[in-house]
Amino acid sequence: MKTDNTFESLLVNEQKELLRHAYALVGQREEAEELLQEVALRVLEKKDKFSLGTNFRGWVHRVMKSVFINMYRSKKRHASYCEPLDGIFYHVDNGSFGIMETASGFNDMYRVINGMPDMYSIPFKMLVSGFKYTEIAEKLNLPIGTVKSRIFLARKRLQAVLADYK
């Protein structure tokens, strides 16, 4: 293992490239700096995992990618499942998602979803917001089969009511 001084100097020398990589991943300066800070902390915590003779640059950039993925998943998981993603509702078309293109289509879909009993609308909204079936089942304290069934029925209802928008 490298000495702390050499390890830290390698990290300092890589900061500029790490910031570029972070910016490429997130697209905003503030978020890139936040990601860079998180990566620096993680690398310093895990410096005992780095061994002499391996590619330091490759290792820290891989750590960055892992931290980015974990941050993205965490933000996605904590998104409110009662609100549409990015202000846009999506409609279901043969099991896939697409953007609702008209205002009247948006209003109809919103009306249909909110008109469903909570036992169907809440799991459906959570799924559209990015939760996985297992996460929905945990949060609602339901068996996974029940969650899948309710989401399936909500999709079928939406497809039937919104058939004109296909």
Rank of each mutant, 00 (worst) to 15 (best):
V63T: 14
E31I: 12
V43P: 05
Q37L: 00
E30R: 07
L25R: 12
G27L: 12
K49F: 06
S66Y: 05
E38D: 15
G27W: 06
V67Y: 06
N55I: 00
E30C: 06
S51Y: 04
K75Q: 13
E30L: 05
A24S: 03
I69E: 13
L44T: 09
K65W: 01
K75T: 08
T54K: 10
E31S: 11
E34P: 07
E30V: 11
G27Q: 05
A32I: 05
T54I: 05
Y23H: 13
M71Y: 01
H78P: 00
R77K: 04
L44S: 01
E45P: 03
R29S: 13
K65H: 04
L25C: 11
V43T: 09
Y72D: 08
D48I: 02
L52C: 02
E31G: 03
S74I: 11
E45H: 07
L41W: 15
R62L: 10
V39N: 11
V60H: 00
F50T: 02
Y72N: 08
R62I: 00
Y72I: 15
Y23K: 04
H21A: 10
R20L: 06
D48A: 03
V67A: 08
V39T: 14
L25W: 08
R57E: 00
S74A: 12
K47E: 12
E34Q: 07
V39D: 10
D48F: 03
G58P: 00
F68G: 05
K46A: 13
M64H: 12
A32F: 04
G53T: 12
L36S: 11
E45C: 06
W59S: 01
Q28G: 10
R77D: 11
A24R: 10
K75W: 08
E30S: 09
H21K: 10
L35P: 01
S66C: 12
L25N: 09
R29I: 12
L41M: 14
E30M: 05
H21R: 08
R42L: 09
T54Q: 14
H61D: 01
V63Y: 02
M71G: 01
Y23Q: 10
L25M: 13
K47L: 05
E45R: 15
K47V: 07
R20D: 09
K75F: 10
V43A: 11
L36V: 07
V43I: 09
S74P: 04
Y72G: 03
W59L: 02
H61W: 06
E34S: 07
A32D: 04
H78F: 06
L35Q: 14
F68V: 01
L35D: 08
R20E: 15
F50D: 02
F50K: 01
N70I: 03
F56Q: 00
W59I: 03
N70Y: 04
G27V: 12
R42V: 15
F68I: 01
S74C: 03
K46M: 08
S51G: 02
L44G: 00
E34Y: 12
A40P: 00
E34V: 08
A24H: 08
R57Q: 04
A22R: 07
T54P: 15
V60I: 15
G27T: 14
S74H: 14
T54Y: 13
Q37V: 00
K65C: 00
L41F: 15
E33A: 04
I69S: 10
